[in-house]
Write a protein that binds this DNA or RNA. Structure first.
Lengths: 180, 180
DNA sequence: CGACTATGTGGGGTGGTGCCCCGCTTTCCG
DNA sequence: CGGAAAGCGGGGCACCACCCCACATAGTCG
């Protein structure tokens, strides 16, 4: 890849990052190209679809979330580690404009971002399941889907509201049993 | 309201219903107006926003779902009645193109459709909570939001997948306790 | 029954979008 | 240092939502 192409790509991602943070996942691509100082054709050549661009924009942040999952493996309580990570994921999704939309739509084009999250969370789920703290028939992809869904629905609400709903979904609606 | 205005309104809703079923919630308004045999200005006068139109399109189906909630009050098992209704709601949302999108976006403009569902489900939740079958700190609006969220996330998947996720969220991820 | 008025209509215009073709510039490598 | 290939962006296309305004029609009152 030529040097100027790399430079342009970086400028596009930077401009897109700012535009998406301000206007959401459906920010104008033309405006992004203008802000980056490139022609719209260049943007379309680097990123064939809007989702390809969003994936590039959020790649670093998703990697950070994956790293966080690794950290949480040190947490002694496996159940708490899993729920904490899922709640943090939800909080991140609701506070970062456009992230959820990108995560939910991107899989159709390329699974990388969603797949990264599922792969990163799997050790947490696995450990909790082995210790009998989580039903073994629950797949990590289910949990990530659940969190993404809640984050999307709560995008207009507050972040705490999203966390509350995630905890509700993880605990279920049945009243807690006395005998533990 | 003049007779021809009523007739035009009905034709627009009918055309919109077919277009949305075919193309989803973001079907072209121009095309809908063309199919209805009216000018685009007429469509925009009757429905100031896309969501107003979608609400008119789905009004009858939402009413049918509300009526179904009334029927389920006759089910002896209160917990089962509630979960059944929520699953049916999810199934309906995933099979009816554009419904979820309309439900999730419309509240910002007018709460009628979402509010109707919450109001219709409340007796079911209330009865289950009184019998101690459902945590009392769970609000009906939470459950409807949860189902809408899952339906949206599973729109690209199958309807059974949506139902599975709804049941998962309602039961929680903890393994079932032996002592019941 | 006929005319008058308000209500409803739709063609056409505007500004904006995503996407693409094609002649031109820049970079890199031999 | 020269040429081929890779990259660039202006301009064009089709489409969109939305709005303005001259015109037609429905409902009402004399």
């Amino acid at each position: 890849m030529r040097a100027d192409a790399q430079r342009n790509r970086a400028r596009i991602v930077k401009a897109a990052s700012e535009a998406v943070a301000r206007d959401g996942a459906y920010a104008s691509l033309e405006e992004i190209a203008r802000a980056a100082g490139v022609g719209s054709a260049t943007l379309h050549r680097h990123f064939p679809s809007r989702w390809a661009l969003l994936e590039a924009v959020f790649h670093d942040r998703v990697e950070a979330l994956c790293a966080r999952a690794g950290e949480l493996l040190a947490e002694p309580n496996a159940h708490r580690a899993l729920t904490t990570w899922l709640c943090e994921l939800a909080a991140y999704c609701t506070t970062t404009r456009g992230l959820v939309t990108a995560l939910l739509r991107a899989p159709q084009e390329s699974e990388s971002c969603s797949a990264m999250l599922v792969a990163a969370g799997e050790p947490l789920r696995c450990r909790a399941a082995e210790e009998g703290l989580v039903r073994s028939d629950v797949a990590m992809v289910d949990l990530v889907t659940l969190v993404k869904a809640i984050a999307l629905a709560a995008e207009s609400s507050s972040a705490p509201e999203a966390e509350r709903l995630v905890r509700l979904a993880l605990q279920g609606i049945n009243p807690p049993r006395r005998c533990l």
